[in-house]
Amino acid sequence: MKNAFGLTTAAALFASTVVAEEVKPTTVSFVDGTVTESLTGQTGDPVEGRKVFANRKLGNCLACHANADLSEESFHGEVGPPMDGVGDRWLEAELRGIVTNSKMMFEGTIMPAFYIDEGYTRPLDDFAGKSILTAQQVEDVVAYLMTLKEQ
């Protein structure tokens, strides 16, 4: 009986540590432009998301969006809407959809799709067939955007 209890406990611990499989770019499910389920099965890290948002080689979000939370960064863009208060204006599922592929939410937008790996032309062969951001980076950016509330 003691051995059975140990096996049951071990199985329960193992099951609780299994992480959901990452959603591949080609299998993301959009509903009216939103993505309701996490792409990774877990919550994003807003601290990491802020880094991705500011990184000119990853998200490069500041190229188009002003963001008072990143006032230490220079050259904020004015093409897209300001990010101040975005966490109050949009639901998490809407932000996930916008970051994943904004074209599913806004017809004709020039915002890039950050989590697709086909249906586009990349100027460098090294990037062909790859998404701009990983599923985890999308979740991190969404978590960060959700922290940007009206003052």
Rank of each mutant, 00 (worst) to 15 (best):
H65G: 07
E21R: 09
T17L: 06
E22L: 02
H76F: 09
G44A: 14
P123W: 05
E92D: 12
E139C: 01
V35W: 00
E107A: 15
G97E: 00
T34L: 01
Q151I: 09
F53M: 13
V141K: 01
A11H: 07
S38T: 11
F14C: 12
L145T: 01
K149T: 10
S71V: 13
V79S: 11
F114M: 11
F30G: 11
A143R: 08
L7G: 15
P25C: 03
K51T: 10
A128Q: 11
D32T: 11
M83N: 12
M105Y: 07
G41V: 09
G44Q: 03
L39T: 12
E150D: 14
R89N: 02
S71T: 14
A11V: 08
G108V: 09
E73D: 13
P25A: 08
T147G: 04
S102Q: 14
R96D: 02
E22S: 09
L95N: 05
A66Y: 12
V19G: 05
V18A: 06
F14L: 12
G97K: 05
A93Y: 01
S102D: 03
P81Q: 06
Q137W: 00
I110K: 14
L39F: 03
E21Y: 04
M1R: 12
I110Y: 13
L124Y: 07
A15T: 06
E118N: 15
M104L: 13
G49W: 00
Y120I: 08
V138S: 06
M105F: 00
E107T: 12
L148I: 07
F5S: 14
G129R: 06
G77S: 02
F127G: 11
S74R: 12
V19F: 00
N55Q: 09
A63V: 14
T100M: 00
L62N: 14
D88S: 13
